[in-house]
């Protein structure tokens, strides 16, 4: 199939592994899905310490279930990317470990306190879910199928995240203050989740033309702001002075894009941001530390007798 035919046919779930697709399409799809998969994994590593730090048994259980889900999302997505025939799952995981794999800006920043958790688990998951819902209509069928399962699970993450925020914002004064501080620190990064506005984005046009992307960054950012700015305010969070945000007469929320630190954004995006490098190396060490598990699974030395081990439920 040539690229013109791809553009003509491009529609929801239009292409699958039985189609003979041009390399340009397969590369663009790989780049997009690999980025998504890497982000799921790096997000899970960022949240993992909070299984231990959770303030109650309920939060601990929910956080551990969420982290488990995110790792699962990463695995689903590496499979969807692998079927494009450009990169293997091992290559993608190795690239993530050696600093070549790219992932979401928000997951380059360290997270230290419990008050920061809803910034990821509510706002970032909320933003991610907005985008993922539109990707159920992407043109690469295995990607769309992965999104069906991801979106099914993701509602729990967002509601759980909102529940943490609701608890903190009705807690002690000190809790509310710390949550507000966390919000001020994370808010600009959260807005940058959707990247620069479309006139500054480089990859969009082709991805949209071949049906991989179903909505522009601007449309997604708009939908997110309209839903989540009022939510933040309802819980008593105050938007920081910068970036300046105002509401139009039609009720839509608008951000002064130039108030955001785009130098930092692109440093982060290129994996050159110092704390982010720490996160990448941390995950690389974790991957290395469980090398023996992969070796044991792949070797023939698996015991043949005895009761089959019970899988984690």
């Amino acid at each position: 199939m040539d690229i013109e035919t791809v553009k003509e046919r491009a529609g929801p779930r239009e292409f699958n592994p039985a189609d003979d697709l041009p390399e340009e399409y397969r590369k663009a799809a790989t780049r997009m899905i690999e980025f998504h998969a890497n982000s799921e994994i790096m997000g899970a590593y960022l949240e993992r310490p909070f299984i231990r730090q959770a303030p109650s048994i309920d939060r601990k259980l929910a956080f551990s279930a969420k982290v488990q889900d995110e790792i699962g999302h990463g695995q689903l997505l590496y499979r969807a990317a692998e079927t494009l025939g450009i990169k293997t799952r091992e290559e993608m995981l190795d690239d993530l470990a050696n600093g070549d794999g790219k992932f979401l800006n928000c997951f380059h920043y360290p997270m230290d306190s419990w008050e920061e958790t809803p910034m990821i688990a509510f706002f970032v998951d909320g933003a991610a879910m907005r985008r993922q819902a539109t990707l159920r209509r992407t043109s690469w069928e295995p990607y769309a199928h992965a999104m069906d399962k991801v979106c099914f699970e993701e509602g729990f993450h967002v509601k759980h995240g909102e529940d943490i925020l609701a608890t903190l914002m009705s807690g002690s004064r000190a809790e509310q203050r710390r949550t507000q501080e966390a919000f001020e620190e994370w808010w600009p990064r959260i807005i940058q989740f959707f990247g620069p506005t479309d006139d500054k984005s480089t990859h969009h046009d082709f991805a949209a033309d071949v049906g991989l992307k179903q909505m522009t960054n601007d449309e997604l950012r708009q939908a997110f702001l309209d839903m989540y700015v009022p939510k933040a305010r309802n819980y008593g969070l105050e938007l920081p002075d910068y970036p300046r945000v105002h509401q139009n007469d039609d009720g839509r929320w608008v951000v002064e894009e130039d108030d955001l630190d785009w130098d930092e954004f692109f440093t982060v995006a290129r994996n050159n941001y110092e704390p982010g490098i720490g996160q990448i190396d941390g995950r690389a060490r974790a991957q290395e530390a469980v090398e023996w598990v992969r070796d044991a699974i792949e070797s023939d030395a698996t015991p043949q007798s005895g009761k089959a081990p019970q899988a984690a439920d």
């Binding site: 907005r130 993701e154 509602g155 729990f156 967002v158």
Partner: peptide, 29 residues
């Protein structure tokens, strides 16, 4: 074999308006 209610959207009774995609997930769950 254990109760894992915390994994379901229905465990979180927020009484707030949800984004369309969150409601969809809620309904599927």
């Amino acid at each position: 074999t254990t109760d894992k209610g915390y994994r379901w959207t229905t465990a979180y009774n927020l009484q707030t308006r949800q984004a369309e995609e969150v409601e969809e997930s809620d309904a599927e769950q």
